[in-house]
Design a protein around this nucleic acid. Structure first.
Length: 239
DNA sequence: GTCCAGGGCCGTT
DNA sequence: AACGGCCATGGA
C-alpha cells in the first residue's frame, strides 16, 4: 500500500519548503526601459527552454537584448543566420530559430502584432491556435498561456511526469491525463480567480523540487516529500 | 569524458 | 497510440 498525495497537499508541502517563487523570470527593467512587452520574452523563452537548461536560455536572451531585438517586430525582421547565432547558446538553434520566427510571424500576421487582442480570447481557442504552430507543443503552449497570458491552464513538464511516477499521484502519465487530474483537484479546492496564481506557483515549485531533489538520479536526502514517496520508501526497504 | 537539461517532430511499429 | 532517433549547447 502506498501513500497518495493530493495535488493540493503537494502544493502545501512544497510551499512550506520553498516559499513563494517569482516566476516566470523576465527582465522587467529591460522592458520598462525599452517599452517592449515582457510577455514576448516569456513566449520566446518558452521556446528556447525546450529540453534545455535555463542558464543556456539566459545567454540567448541576453544576446537578443544586447542587439535590441527581443520584441516582435525586430524578430520578424531579423536575418535568419543572425538569429541563429544569437540564440546558439540555447542549443537546437536551427530549429529554435525557425520556431521563434514562426510564432512571431503568426502574431504579426494574425493579430497585427498585438498580444492583447490575442490573449483576449478564450483559453481553449488560444491553445488550439498555438498547438497548430510547428514546434509549439503542449508544454510550450501551456507555459505561454499560463505565464504570458495568465490563463488558468496547468503546465505539465518532464518534472511533473517524473514526480507522478515516483510519488505516486493517482494519474496516468500522458500529458492530458496529468493536466486534467491536477486541474480537477485545484478547481475543487480554490476559487477560480486564484487558479492562475496557484498553477504558476505549483509548476514553479515542482521545478524547484526536481532541480534540487527529485532529479533523474534522485537526491532524497532533505526532500520534503520522501516520507510519502513510493520511490523512496521502496528504496528504504531494500537496505 | 559522460550525463543531463523547464520538448517536439518525424518515421516506424 | 507508443516508442526511438534526432536536434546542440554548456554546466556539473
Amino acid at each position: 500500500m502506498y501513500f497518495d498525495i493530493d495535488p493540493t497537499e503537494l502544493y502545501q508541502i512544497l510551499s512550506d519548503k520553498f516559499g513563494r517563487l517569482k516566476w516566470w523570470p523576465t527582465d522587467r527593467k529591460y522592458h520598462k526601459k525599452n517599452g517592449t512587452d515582457p510577455r514576448f520574452e516569456i513566449i520566446i523563452g518558452a521556446i528556447l527552454t525546450q529540453n534545455t537548461a535555463w542558464s543556456n536560455v539566459e545567454r540567448a536572451l541576453k544576446n537578443l537584448k544586447n542587439e535590441n531585438i527581443l520584441n516582435l517586430d525586430e524578430i520578424v525582421e531579423c536575418n535568419d543566420e543572425k538569429l541563429k547565432e544569437l540564440i546558439r547558446p540555447s542549443g537546437f538553434f536551427n530549429q529554435k530559430a525557425k520556431r521563434v520566427k514562426n510564432i512571431s510571424e503568426f502574431f504579426k500576421e494574425k493579430y497585427s502584432g498585438d498580444l492583447d487582442s490575442f490573449f483576449n480570447k478564450e483559453p481553449l481557442e488560444l491553445r488550439k491556435q498555438l498547438l497548430n504552430l510547428k514546434g509549439i507543443g503542449p508544454e510550450t503552449t501551456d507555459s505561454i498561456l499560463l505565464y504570458a497570458g495568465e490563463k488558468p491552464i496547468f503546465v505539465v513538464d518532464a518534472y511533473t511526469k517524473r514526480i507522478c511516477k515516483r510519488l505516486p499521484v493517482e494519474s496516468k502519465d500522458s500529458y492530458k491525463e496529468i493536466q486534467k487530474y491536477f486541474q480537477k483537484k485545484f478547481i475543487k479546492n480554490y476559487n477560480h480567480s486564484d487558479l492562475v496564481e496557484v498553477y504558476q506557483q505549483v509548476h514553479a515549485l515542482i521545478v524547484e523540487l526536481c532541480k534540487n531533489y527529485c532529479r533523474k538520479k534522485p537526491k532524497c536526502n532533505g526532500c520534503p516529500l520522501r516520507e510519502k514517496c513510493r520511490f523512496y520508501l521502496s528504496k528504504q526497504k531494500k537496505i
